[in-house]
Amino acid sequence: MKFVNSYYKPGKQIISLQVLNQKVSKNFKKASKYIYDLYCPSCHKARLSYVNKTANKKAYLRTVRNSKHKKSCRYNFVTVSKRYTKQYFETLSSTQVQAKMLSVIRSLSKRKNSSKKAKRISRNIIANLFTLPAKKNKTSHVKILRQKKLNGYLRKNQLQNKLFLFYGQDLYLKTSNKKTVKNFDYLELHKNSSSKIYVRVPLPITMSNTLKSNINSINNGKKYTFIAIGRLKFLKNYSPDLILINADALIFQ
């Protein structure tokens, strides 16, 4: 894994790769006091090595062999791709998918009820959803989803068609359909009971009967905690659609 920043322990400061390159090109001997005392910019535990540029490659920072990051360090986690997530979910039954979603929403509910503000869901909780076996002679990294809290303006240039674990608290849920049918076509998310639609979730017809039953029992006047895995599709003159990665990758309570 390559880094763009490093932590210089003696100076207790973050030094970018760009600054290191400038110091090295100016005076390698003086720069050596920095490049031989660098650590992970996140956990400050794992030692980093500065690899000088060559004729074919730019200089870069990497973890020293056998040097460990803290378990909670973000560099232990690698963002999971849409393709892998879809393949992963296809191996699970609807019951297994809902069990994993339930563990995430329980984690969020615990943090909401604690003294700590629930800014993000624990990386370790999300990591339990996506783990890959270590490859031979390679460092094992946990696959993890990007997270996005549903509480503010949704920027198209940042979110369009990118896979996220979306979560929100104190949201109002409503169901709607395009025609008179037994099952609803959409699940609407609202910031308050009378506001316009914030996000709309097209409901797959293949979702489990349990999830369908829960959706049919939604109380329009109640606030919900909501979690879903998918991507946002932005529509002209309308609220964005949240396209689920799997028919059962949705939970609320």
Rank of each mutant, 00 (worst) to 15 (best):
Q147W: 11
T139P: 07
F130V: 08
F130M: 15
I126G: 03
N128T: 05
K156T: 02
N161T: 12
F130S: 04
L154P: 01
S107V: 06
K156L: 15
A99L: 13
R146D: 08
K116C: 03
L159P: 03
I144N: 05
T95P: 00
N124E: 15
Y153M: 07
K100R: 09
S122L: 08
M101E: 03
L108C: 01
S103C: 10
I125A: 02
L145K: 01
Q160T: 07
R106Y: 06
Q96R: 08
I144H: 01
R146Q: 13
R155Y: 14
S140V: 12
L145T: 02
K138D: 05
T131F: 15
I144C: 14
L154A: 04
S103A: 11
R155T: 12
S122M: 03
N157G: 05
R120S: 04
L159D: 04
A118C: 09
K138H: 07
K116M: 11
K116A: 07
S122D: 03
L132D: 01
A134K: 07
R120F: 10
P133S: 08
S103R: 07
K119A: 09
R155M: 10
N157S: 13
Q158I: 13
T139C: 11
N151P: 00
L129A: 01
Q158L: 13
R111W: 00
I125L: 00
R155H: 15
G152T: 12
T131G: 01
S115I: 14
L145N: 00
K148A: 14
K117E: 03
T95K: 12
K135M: 09
Q160R: 13
N161W: 04
L154V: 11
R106V: 02
T131N: 11
L129M: 15
K119D: 13
N128W: 03
K110I: 11
M101T: 00
K135I: 12
L129G: 03
I144T: 09
L145D: 00
A99Y: 11
Q98I: 08
K119G: 14
I144F: 01
K135L: 08
N113K: 14
K156M: 06
K135R: 05
S109N: 13
R155S: 11
K110A: 08
L145G: 00
N161G: 04
N124K: 10
T95V: 13
S115H: 08
L102H: 10
K119R: 12
T139F: 12
S122R: 11
K119F: 15
L154Q: 06
K143C: 13
N137E: 10
K117R: 14
S122A: 14
K138Q: 15
S122H: 04
K149Q: 15
Q98R: 12
A99K: 09
F130K: 05
A134W: 05
N157R: 15
T139D: 06
N137A: 13
N124D: 05
Y153G: 03
S114L: 06
M101L: 00
N124C: 02
K100L: 05
L129R: 02
R111T: 11
I121H: 02
S140W: 11
S140T: 13
L154R: 01
S122K: 04
N124R: 09
R106A: 09
Y153K: 06
A127P: 04
L159C: 04
R120V: 04
N124I: 07
